[in-house]
Simulated scan of single mutants.
Amino acid sequence: MDAEALTSALVLRAQKGDGTAFAELIEAQYDCIYRTAWRWCGRRDDAEDIAQEVCVKIGQGLARFDGRSAFSSWVYRITLNAVRDWQRAGARRVRHHDAFADVSPSEAEAEQEAVATACELWAAVRSLPEKQRDAVLLVYAEELSHAEAAAIMGIKEATVSFHVFEARKTLRGLL
């Protein structure tokens, strides 16, 4: 059984009240949810809070999931909406996190520099306008195709390409 068929079977079982199936769905999606939330907000604590909220929202909305899109796309949309809710609520108190929080003293200097550069890049990405930020994070951080990102964002594929192009221009000026 391929991954999509397995996920579909778990969704059906979970929609019928099977708690074990729901737990398996959450376990399979949690790393992606957390990673996506972290890339959007840049702070571990906030990403954990958002990921927990997303898991609750999945549980609340699972009965309404109709399978017209991939389950993972539906989860991405919920995650993006949770991040936006978090941002609108004023939970983002710090726009840039300390790059050194991800670097341990035992790491080589080159690794520390690479981590600091990556943190600087993601901080710059998080400062982009919403649509550009979403497009860049979905395409580059999550490694989705423009078509997959378009489905998640609810826009046309060409529009995703435009947002990525505009983001690159903006990032060149920021970095």
Rank of each mutant, 00 (worst) to 15 (best):
D2L: 06
D2N: 06
A3P: 00
E4S: 04
T7I: 14
T7V: 13
L10G: 02
A14V: 10
G17D: 07
G17I: 13
A23W: 06
A23D: 08
E24M: 12
E27R: 11
E27N: 09
A28H: 11
Q29N: 12
Y30E: 15
Y34A: 03
T36G: 02
T36L: 03
R39D: 02
R39F: 03
W40A: 11
R43N: 12
R43D: 13
I50T: 00
A51V: 15
V54H: 03
V56A: 05
I58A: 06
I58F: 02
A63Q: 14
A63D: 12
R64V: 11
F65A: 05
D66N: 08
R68L: 03
S69K: 01
V75E: 03
T79C: 07
T79K: 02
A82H: 06
A82L: 11
W86F: 10
Q87W: 06
A91Y: 01
A91T: 00
R92F: 03
V94F: 09
A101F: 10
D102F: 15
S106I: 09
E107T: 11
A110M: 07
A110W: 11
E113A: 08
E113I: 08
A114K: 12
T117N: 07
A118V: 06
E120N: 08
W122N: 05
A123S: 09
V125L: 03
V125H: 01
V125F: 00
R126Y: 02
K131A: 15
R133K: 07
R133C: 11
V136W: 01
V139M: 01
Y140I: 06
L144D: 00
S145M: 10
H146W: 06
A151I: 14
I152F: 05
K156M: 04
E157G: 10
E157R: 15
V160H: 04
F162P: 00
F162D: 11
E166F: 02
T170S: 13
R172F: 09
